[in-house]
């Protein structure tokens, strides 16, 4: 069973066009507060967690098939080279094949100690960032956008590796801003570090 969870603080109607176009039969859930990211300590989309029949985490949160090829795209035309596009599709297919193999044979499920070792730790700063993000969302939703934005900015400062906190705040400020010039500046500032760390399959 696939459970797709939209991290979407603008609410269900904002996610609806994508969900309707996807025409899926699995659960499509709306998470306006980014509660899943809090519970599972997530930092970006798409991330996935594999959960077995006993409700145990078989693979900790990891990038769900996306790659860093987009970082080399031509920003003027918003296009990638044919080679990068092909590599990107191959990587995505390999990830989806791994998911299918797990479903049918149990392949790629990690032993408990490895699954545990792959969990990112929640630090006090991350916990505070989540609380500030939640407060910021509430303030924004209740006519106090400027004050809410300050809380969200502080959340991003406390948890700088979370792309979701920063990009959701940018999107609330203005649709499109999450992938605008400031986003690209942040991506460039990563240097050699990955935006989408590949799943270790």
């Amino acid at each position: 069973m696939v459970v797709a969870v939209a991290q979407e603080s603008r609410g269900a109607e904002h996610a609806r066009p994508w969900i309707e176009q996807a025409k899926t039969s699995y659960w499509q859930l709306i998470d306006t507060d980014h509660r899943l990211e809090d519970l599972y300590n997530l930092v970006n989309v798409p991330q996935a967690i594999w959960i077995d029949e006993q409700g145990r985490i078989a693979r900790p949160p990891e990038t769900a098939g996306s790659t860093d090829h987009f970082r080399r795209m031509n920003l003027a035309t918003r296009t990638m080279s044919a080679e990068d596009q092909a590599e990107r599709l191959v990587a995505r297919q390999a990830y989806l094949d791994a998911v299918r193999a797990w479903v049918t044979t149990g392949a790629h499920a990690l032993p408990a100690d490895e699954a545990r070792a792959g969990l990112p730790k929640v630090t006090p700063d991350i916990a505070e960032a989540r609380a500030r993000f939640r407060l910021g969302l509430w303030l924004r939703a209740n006519g106090r956008a400027a004050e809410g934005d300050l809380q969200m900015a502080e959340a991003s400062r406390l948890h700088p590796v979370s792309w979701s906190l920063w990009r959701q705040a940018a999107d609330l400020d203005e649709v499109g801003k999450a992938s605008g010039p400031d986003f690209w500046k942040r991506v460039q500032a990563l240097g050699d570090r990955p935006y989408y760390p590949p799943a270790k399959l």
Partner: peptide, 20 residues
């Protein structure tokens, strides 16, 4: 409302996405 616990007994591929 949907709860993860309703899916006990099945494998779950839990994935996030966003419009932004």
């Amino acid at each position: 409302p949907r709860s993860l616990s309703q899916l006990r007994g099945r494998k779950v591929f839990l994935a996030t996405w966003a419009s932004w």
